[in-house]
Design a protein around this nucleic acid. Structure first.
Lengths: 220, 220
DNA sequence: CATATATTCAATTAATATCGATAGTAATAG
DNA sequence: CTATTACTATCGATATTAATTGAATATATG
């Protein structure tokens, strides 16, 4: 805790919010609930953490007022509070991290042998092309996340079903793939697969939560 | 540290950046060096921390690549890296904190019995009124911070000299006061003093670093 | 070399993450 | 209505990590 001035006390409160972001598991949880509300066990399974640990992390997010549960029967469904602001904060963190921590760039480049090749389409460009009808919009997240909310007109082929679907896919259109957010790898891999099959494919820069936070229309 | 996927590793890096923000002393240090570069001892004096502790905190900021020193003789002068992004991150943190942590509002209201009365002037409005020449711009930070950089046309009367200066102050103009940033209390107190003396005074919302980060012109 | 300044070290204290077990709390089966 | 089931939260214990201080070390100046 703190001390004298009101300034110190305010900084302490802001520091608590930052502390809630200061753990990779919590960032992962935030990315997940940014897709839509999720119960504790669900989050535990997806993150590979124990339920007790997941619950503990959720309490931390709750105390920092970043996330909030509502009861639905036996479950507690967690979601972001003030989605727009929280997502903006995560985006600002990513931007600083990306610019400052060269390691992040390195990981991206190592893992995907050519991140540059997997060009990102900005939201504005996608909007135009959706209007013009010159693009197929592909959501490669798991089906249940798709069900919780999606970009308008998107079709859902989860990444693990993409290979199977590629056979029957007719592609006179360019494909734009999206997933959970800037560090979700699903869309990267999807674009790589699509290109191997000769499809002209691109990633949407950012993912569903950022789209929604930008006030753009969503379905679901 | 972490584990398997590249995603986990990226989140770990972002978490390190967040961890660097997760301490009130470091937030205070960041606010100070956002005014301009500062040596370690200087920061220690201003924050009331020991030099060793200040240095330690600066190393944390350095590792997170939020701040960076340059040598100047015997001193190491620290400043922000990528000012614009870092200030945007701090602003996003403040916005979430302010909206989510009701306590912050409460502190502001308790300390200043009427925060609302101390209306904040947005940057755009100030720009217009500066152009029109209908406003006196007052920088109430310490003289050395003023020397490091300031808004164009501002006059400097540090808060602790304001009472003395009030006698000789002729005020046919509205006064807009600014200081270090949204949680710096100097401008609040200045506006309160000015109003007691019958001057029509307002605070600039945010402070010098945010002005500079917005790409607006500065002097110095 | 003596001085001023900054960093690092060693040691203490405090906070956080994690796990396994236990204790709520709400739906539902009887 | 009660007992059971299915989740979630909390507690106690341990391991890890962070903050702070005072002393020691390093780095530049003159």
């Amino acid at each position: 805790m703190s001390s004298n001035g009101p300034k110190q006390r305010i900084f302490s409160h802001l520091a608590e919010v930052a502390a809630a972001l200061a753990h990779s598991h919590r960032l992962e949880i935030l990315e997940l609930i940014a897709q839509g509300e999720r119960c504790v066990e669900d989050l535990a399974v997806r993150t590979g953490l124990s339920v007790a640990n997941t619950s503990r992390h959720l309490q931390v997010l709750r105390r920092a007022r970043l996330a909030e549960p509502r009861r639905a029967g036996k479950r507690m469904l967690y979601s972001l509070i003030c989605e727009t602001e929280v997502i903006a904060l995560l985006a600002a963190l990513s931007r600083v991290g990306e610019r400052n921590v060269a390691e992040i760039e390195r990981i991206m480049k190592t893992y995907f042998h050519s991140r540059d090749a997997l060009e990102a389409v900005p939201r504005g460009v996608l909007l135009e092309r959706l209007h013009a009808g010159t693009v197929t919009l592909l959501d490669v997240r798991p089906a249940d996340e798709f069900a919780l909310g999606r970009l308008p007109g998107a079709i859902n082929i989860p990444l693990d079903q993409l290979d199977a679907a590629l056979g029957g896919l007719t592609t006179d259109h360019t494909v734009v793939a999206y997933c959970r957010g800037p560090y979700c790898l699903l869309s990267f891999e999807a674009v790589a697969k699509l290109r191997l099959h000769g499809v002209e494919a691109y990633r949407l820069e950012d993912g569903y939560p950022e789209w929604k936070a930008a006030g753009l229309p969503v379905e679901g």
